[in-house]
Structures are given as C-alpha cells and as structure tokens.
Simulated scan of single mutants.
Amino acid sequence: MVKKAAPAPRREDSLSRDRIVDVAIELLDAEGESGLTFRALAGRLATGPGAIYWHVANKGELLTAACDAIVGRTMTIAVAGESPETDIRALALGLFDAIDAHPWVGSALTRAPGQLPAVRILEGLGQALCALGVPAERQWPTVSALLSYILGVAGQNAANAHVGRTLGTDRLAFLSSVAATWSELDEEAFPFVRSMAGPLREHDDRADFLAGIDLILGGVCGQATG
C-alpha cells in the first residue's frame, strides 16, 4: 500500500509583512544573507513564495525592511532624551551592539543609502546635533562623519568576529596571536605598533568605540561653542 505524503504544515497565524520580516531576520541571523531565500522563507512560514511576493517585491526590499526593523527597535530603546550628547552616545552604542548581534545589518545599511534605515539614523543624530547648536553649514559634514564612524567601526567589529569564528578561535586567542606578532616587529621600523601589542590584547571593543564617539563629540561641542 502506497503511503500518502504527509501534508505540509499549515500556517495558523495570518501572513503579514511584519511576520515575514521577523522570520527573515531569524534566517539572516542563522544563515547570513546567502540563507535568505524566498523558498527558505516560505518553508518557515508554511506558505508559498507567491504569498510572500504579495507583501515584498524582492530580496533587496526584504533585506532593507529587515534592516529597518532592527534599526527602528534600536533607536526606540536607545534615545532617552536626557541630553544631546547622551542620546548620540546611546544611539551609537545601540547600533554598535545591533550590528554585533546582527552582522548583516552593516552591509544592508551601506547598500541602501538614502532609504529608511539610514534616514532614521540620520534623523536621530541630526536632531541631537541641532540641539547641540552645530551651525547649519556644519551639520551635514558632522552627521556624515558620525554616521561613517559608527557604521565603519561597528562593521569592522562584526567582520573581526566573523574572521574569528571562521578560524575557529575565540577573541582572546586571536588578539593574543596578533599581539605576539606585533611584539616581534622591528623596533626601529614599528615602534608605535610594538608598543600597542599589550593594549591590543586587553582592549575592550565597546569602550574603544565610545572613546571615538567622545573624540568626535569633543570636536563638535568645540565648534558649536567656538
């Protein structure tokens, strides 16, 4: 007797764009961008790809929507309105942690310039800079510098973590190996880098990131009051 194929699992909840985005985030976190396919998404949602296309036109749109969801949640939590400087630091650190937790967000942001995820960040940083009294003619270069620093450092941090996982080593072992290499460099040719071997081994990524934000803010505040 031929057995009947098991029926496909039925989706009990109604399919919505928000539900699709949430499951896309789960796929991206688990498998990266290469794992985000409409077939995989349909399997998790227990529906057909056609139903997903009704809500999302293509993978690029879905990736941007997933990125926007992460950015929107981050900004809702980060900005407390205590002071402009506090808001900038909180927003920057929130994005740093979000990209660390969801490494695909950094590349998604760089591939969607001018779209809603980047617009949210620009608006948050820009309002804080206006509150700091940054002159109108300095607002664009200032917010651009902040955004470039945040995305650049957070993206590099996430990339470093990926390299470590690829090599099958943890952060401390990786940094210790690099520090050992630096300490053996020629003392006359690389005196500064040799001196950084110790700090490299012991440094805190988040603390270093915030130190950079504070350096930028120091210059911003100096311009605003100068």
Rank of each mutant, 00 (worst) to 15 (best):
M1N: 05
A5M: 09
A6R: 13
R11W: 10
L15R: 01
S16W: 04
R17T: 09
V21P: 02
V23C: 03
E26W: 00
E26G: 09
E31S: 15
E31K: 13
S34I: 09
R39E: 11
L41Y: 03
L45E: 04
T47D: 03
G50S: 15
Y53M: 03
Y53T: 04
V56I: 15
A57Q: 10
N58K: 07
G60D: 14
G60S: 11
L62I: 03
L62R: 02
L63F: 07
D68S: 13
T76Q: 14
T76F: 05
T76N: 08
G81T: 05
S83R: 10
P84A: 09
I88Y: 01
I88R: 00
G94Q: 00
F96Q: 09
I99S: 05
D100W: 01
A101I: 02
A101K: 07
H102I: 02
P103W: 02
G114K: 07
P117S: 02
A118L: 14
A118Y: 03
R120L: 07
L122T: 04
E123C: 02
L125D: 00
G126H: 03
L129S: 05
L129P: 01
A131T: 03
Q139S: 11
S148A: 15
L151M: 07
A154P: 12
A161P: 02
H162A: 14
G164V: 00
R171P: 13
L172A: 15
A173P: 12
S176L: 07
S176W: 02
A180I: 00
W182N: 12
S183K: 10
E188Y: 06
F190N: 11
P191W: 06
P191Y: 10
M196C: 11
G198Y: 05
G198W: 04
P199I: 07
P199N: 06
D204E: 12
R206D: 06
A211Y: 06
A211D: 12
G219E: 12
G219A: 09
V220Y: 04
A224G: 08
